[in-house]
Structure formats: C-alpha cells, structure tokens
Design a protein around this nucleic acid. Sequence first.
RNA 1: GGCCCUAUCGUCUAAUGGUCAGGACAACACGCUUUCAAUGUGUAAAUCCGGGUUCGAUUCCCGGUAGGGUCACCA
Length: 454
Amino acid sequence: MSKAQVQNKHSINDTKSQVQVITRFAPSPTGTLHLGGAHTALFNYLFARQNNGKFILRIEDTDIARSKKEYEDDILAGLKWLGFDWDEFYRQSERKEIYKKYLERLINEDKAYFSKETEGERESVIRFRNPNKKISFNDLIRGDIQFDTAELEDFVIAKDLESPLFHFTVVVDDAEMEITHIIRGEDHISNTPRQILIQEALGFKSPFYAHMPLMLGPDRTKLSKRHGAVSVNSYCEQGYLAKALINFLALIGWNPGTEKEIYDMEELIREFSIKRIQKSAAIFNIERLDWFNFHYIKQMDEKELADLLPDYLPEDLKSKAKKNHAQWVKIVALEKERITKLPDIKNGIAYFFEKPEFGKEMLLWKQEKDFGAVKKHLGKVIEILDAMDEKTFMSQNIKEAVWNYVEEQGRGNVLWPFRVALSGLEKSPDPFIISEILGKEESLNRLHHAIEKL
RNA sequence: GGCCCUAUCGUCUAAUGGUCAGGACAACACGCUUUCAAUGUGUAAAUCCGGGUUCGAUUCCCGGUAGGGUCACCA
C-alpha cells in the first residue's frame, strides 16, 4: 500500500471518521525548551487543532536525577509564550502506579524479567524479552521503515518496578492517553522498533508515526547547547516576537506549496498538512528568523510597540522615553522599520532626548562646501522655521516651507547640515520628521547651536 | 563501525517523466533619495556522482559518495 493510500484510508478530514486526533508533545525537563522542541510542539499543535483534536503536554521526568523543576518551568513558559495551549497535562513522575501495573503484567507473562547484572551498583534491572523479529512501520512522512530488532537484544525497560525507563513509559502513556499520531523528531526513528515491540507485548494498538526532519545547527549537527539550542525564552529576551518564531519554525520542514511566506497561527492551523512535511533535515538560519522578526515589528501598531519598547531601553533612556508619550510614539513609528530585534531600539535614538555632540566638519556635505555657505543655509532654515506656527510644526509642512530654498541651493547643501544640526549623525532619518519630533523650540535651539560652532 | 534516515541556489524551499528548474532570506547592482531606513527593479546563485528504465530523467530503480541520526540502568 502506498503512503498516499495509507494516509487516505485514515483521513481525519473525513467527517464520518469517529477517531479523534490526539497528539502530544513530550519534553524531558532535563534541559530548556529549545528551537527543536518548539518545532516539534508546533507541528503537533497545528495538527491537533486543525482536526479539532486534543493536544497533550506530557513532562517526561522519569529520570529524577537529571530532571529539574526550573527546566519544566522554562518549557511551560516557552510554550505559553509561543501561543500554545494544551488540553491535558501529565507528569510521568506522578504516574508510577500505572507503569508498575503494566510492568508486573509483562513480568507475569514472562515478556519481561528481572535480570541479574554483574556490573554496576544495582542488583538487577528489568529487561524486555526481545522476540527478535523483524518489524516494520509506515511513517507518514517517510513511508515504510524496517528494522531487525535482533540486534537490540533484551533491552532494559526499567531499573525496578518503581523506576520505569523511557521506552516503556512512552508506550504506556501513548496508549493510555490514546495518542493517535506521534509526531516527533527524526532522532526517534531508531527508538520506534523498541517501542513497537513493547506495544505488541502489551497488546496496544500502534499509533501513526510521523518523524519530522531535524533542525540542525550551522555546523550541520543536531541542535545542542553549542548552537541555537538556547531556550526559546531567551529569544523572547533577545527581542524576538513569538509570531516571528512561529512563522519561521512553521516554514522549516513544511511549506504549503505556494509562494506565500507570511503565516499566523490561524492560517497555519488551516493549511498545515502532514503530507507536505519535508524529509530532509534543515539548517537553522538566524538571518531568516531576523527577517521574519523585522517584518512583524514593521507591521506592528506603533502604539502597541511604544508600550513594549521602553523595557528594552537602558534606564536613562527609559525614563526619558516615558516623559513624553506622544513624542515617544512618533520616535517608535520612525524607528520601527529600522530595527530587527526589539532591543535594537536603543541604538541611535539618544539624540531625540539630548543635544548631540559633533564636530563642525560634520556639517559639511561631501567636503565640497565652505563653512560660510553652511552658516547661511542654517540661518535661512532658522528664519523659515521661526516663522512657522507651532501648532502646524509637522514634517510635511516643514518640508514645504523650506523646499523652495532647498531646491534653489541644492538639496544636499541645505539638507545635510540641517539634518546633522538636529541629529549630530551621519546617518539618521530626514530633518523634517526629526524637527517635528523635537518640536519647534528645540529644533531652533539646535540649529542655533550648530551655527555657533561655525 | 552496525543499523536507520536524507540528498534542488550559501540557507529555507517550489516544481515536473519534456519548464528559460520558480519563490523567499542573505549577497550584489541600479532606481527613488541630503544620509540612513523603507520601498521598487534587476544580477549572480542549485537538481551530489555513476549506471539503468525511457524517445526523454532533476524526477522512477540500483550502486556509490556525502551529510545526519541512533546504538545507556538518558529522554
């Protein structure tokens, strides 16, 4: 049977189907939620939501030695920040009795046994009696995959009745929670045969498997502490938007087959399809993430952004920004298309709050003007601005007021010193909008100040 | 090393048994502009190699190579 037929047979879009889709994200709190985990969580979430199914969050904390509460907190915070919500929540550490019951059953049926170990501290462990058969499963993404489990030998499924191990707890939980689709990273492909063996021994039904392509670091190896495997929460702290991360992650290993690049969660839920998941691993490219972030910042409402941004400012700028809200909103409107990450706002806006320092040579445009001419131009600009009404002291009006003179004298000759007098920078927004934001009085101050330098 | 997965521009990817192999990010150039940013236009950039099937393969098959994953009393 082909992959397409298999998928078709179990089509969940079929309204006659009685089967409710249930997916799960099952992180281990032995580390933070990194991009790879978020990627897996996203696909599980999208698939569950688009089928009106359930999305379960299960904390796999059977390894008490390595599991930490702070990691669990990090994972939950990260998932919430990204916009995921879950229908059920479990911790494996709270389900020991359930595992024990199944473990005993396996032992009673002689499908597992206590094994005396010659080495190590423990007297014995519980091993699974491997039937040593060939098993195969149909991966929704990769098609048929076959393994010979003989080489797995009698693997360990628990340290003792109270301490089940990963493969065992996963199988029990997935069955108990009635998970229909296991969507997880490709690194779990080789775990699947073990888990199927346990399923068969316990008489459980096998769920569908979909092994997603891995996200690799720039060095083409599995994401780890070395690369971007930092907590998604740190992306939040670095000033990335959750929307940007979601959009970026969604388009890794999946695409709708159109040329549309911008997707919000709603659209993703609507258009996501397991059939269109890629087989090959993808390399994490932060430039692309930056572009999405830039895009979403640019798209944001400036009032909303104005409320958000002060938190990314150093204290001195922060208090200045909060002093005049109307002015701050204008600054944000101006800067939002110049920043890639939220904290970038702190760069190059100090001149709005304090008179800039600069040498008089800065006022010369392309070294082809003498100071006398600069002085004359600035004087004229002062004269024009001074005549303007404070109430209509706005970018467009200012531009119109000086435009005749500017055209007559050469744009750069007038506008360069005008702009530098206000910003003190080689690169900045145009002098009209800066004037508006500064206000008539402060603009005139700065122009006079510049003339004094000459 | 055994087993498993994978292979289209630098990166994320689209497409097809016959296309000028498309888009996006990045890069570069040009336009707009006093500078920056934004924006517009354009350029460069890919089907891993070798066989086979076929009138025709990037596409299907086989082999090679490369990359990745996995081989715990971790998950």
